[in-house]
């Protein structure tokens, strides 16, 4: 069943001299329970597209349909932002409870779900710490728990691990796999790491350099459940390289444009 259906999405911004086109006629269908990774050179408009899906921005033109199935007050989407968008003025548990509090989920249920998710991302000891007392990896765990505790129909992730060092990143990738395996939510995941996309996604969608539009699409044939060991699979490296071949020209183009 199609959960998200975007067709011919365009987005342009008013620049100082001319309109800047960020996304041009981009189309994407995401099935219920599918993990789709959006990959493209930096500045290609993948975050913009994600924000349009999240409802944080209006598309300039195009058709976006999101199939809504629950009427029980579950939110349609929750976003994990890049870098440290957890609120520095709230403790870990206040951050995780934020979406629930805004939706007026009763206190008891809110506390229970908050505690559950803090546990699940391994931050029980830090529940009453403020983000500045945590490391970058722990802060992003808070961001992930904040989204998942909200129990959205769709999980949107905007380069959530982009700011982390390589080792912390790997640890969190494994954690994401483990969490997703148990929930199978519909996920749209923006990243610029091909390996991350192949490891996590059911499907990898490539975007061209600015303005972003459809470049290519790859179905990831790797079996679930996956772990970090999946990266040793020959299929993994072959697909990663294949994607890179497609992406190389775009990255080149984006570098020249930004020069």
């Amino acid at each position: 069943m199609t959960k998200i259906s975007a067709e011919g999405i365009c987005k342009s911004f008013a620049g100082p001299r001319q309109r800047v086109e960020a996304v041009r006629s981009f189309s994407l269908d995401v099935r219920e329970g599918e993990f789709v990774c959006l990959v493209g050179p930096s500045g290609c408009g993948k975050s913009t597209f994600l924000r349009i899906v999240a409802g944080l921005m209006e598309a300039t033109s195009g058709r976006l349909e999101i199939h809504r199935d629950a009427e029980d007050g579950r939110p349609l989407n929750s976003m994990v932002f890049q870098e440290y968008a957890v609120f520095p003025w709230k403790t870990v548990s206040e951050n995780v409870a934020f979406g629930l509090a805004m939706r007026n989920v009763p206190r008891k249920e809110r506390d229970a779900r908050t505690a559950e998710w803090i546990d699940r991302v391994g931050l029980r000891r830090f529940a009453h710490h403020y983000p500045h007392q945590l490391s970058g990896g722990m802060r992003q765990r808070v961001g992930i728990a904040r989204a998942l505790a909200n129990d959205p129909e769709i999980l949107l992730m905007d380069e959530p691990l982009g700011a982390l060092d390589a080792q912390t990143r790997t640890v969190l990738q494994e954690e994401l796999l483990r969490i997703w395996q148990s929930r199978r939510k519909t996920v749209m995941y923006v990243t610029h790491s091909i390996e991350e996309a192949v490891l996590l996604g059911d499907r990898v969608v490539l975007m061209t350099a600015h303005p972003g539009t459809n470049k290519a699409e790859f179905t990831v044939p790797l079996e679930r459940p996956r772990t970090l060991q999946t990266t040793t699979d020959p299929q993994f490296s072959r697909l990663s390289y294949q994607i890179w071949e497609e992406l190389r020209d775009e990255v080149q183009r984006s570098m020249e444009e930004n020069a």
């Binding site: 924000r51 999240a54 409802g55 944080l56 939110p75 989407n77 929750s78 976003m79 932002f81 890049q82 870098e83 968008a85 957890v86 609120f87 709230k90 934020f98 979406g99 805004m102 939706r103 904040r146 909200n150």
Partner: peptide, 22 residues
């Protein structure tokens, strides 16, 4: 930081609550 406002909106904070919490 715009990302805080976006996070506030995405998690359903509006009006007075946006002021109070974000």
């Amino acid at each position: 930081e715009p990302v805080y406002l976006e996070a506030g909106r995405n998690y359903g904070a509006t009006g007075r609550r946006m002021f109070r919490h974000v």
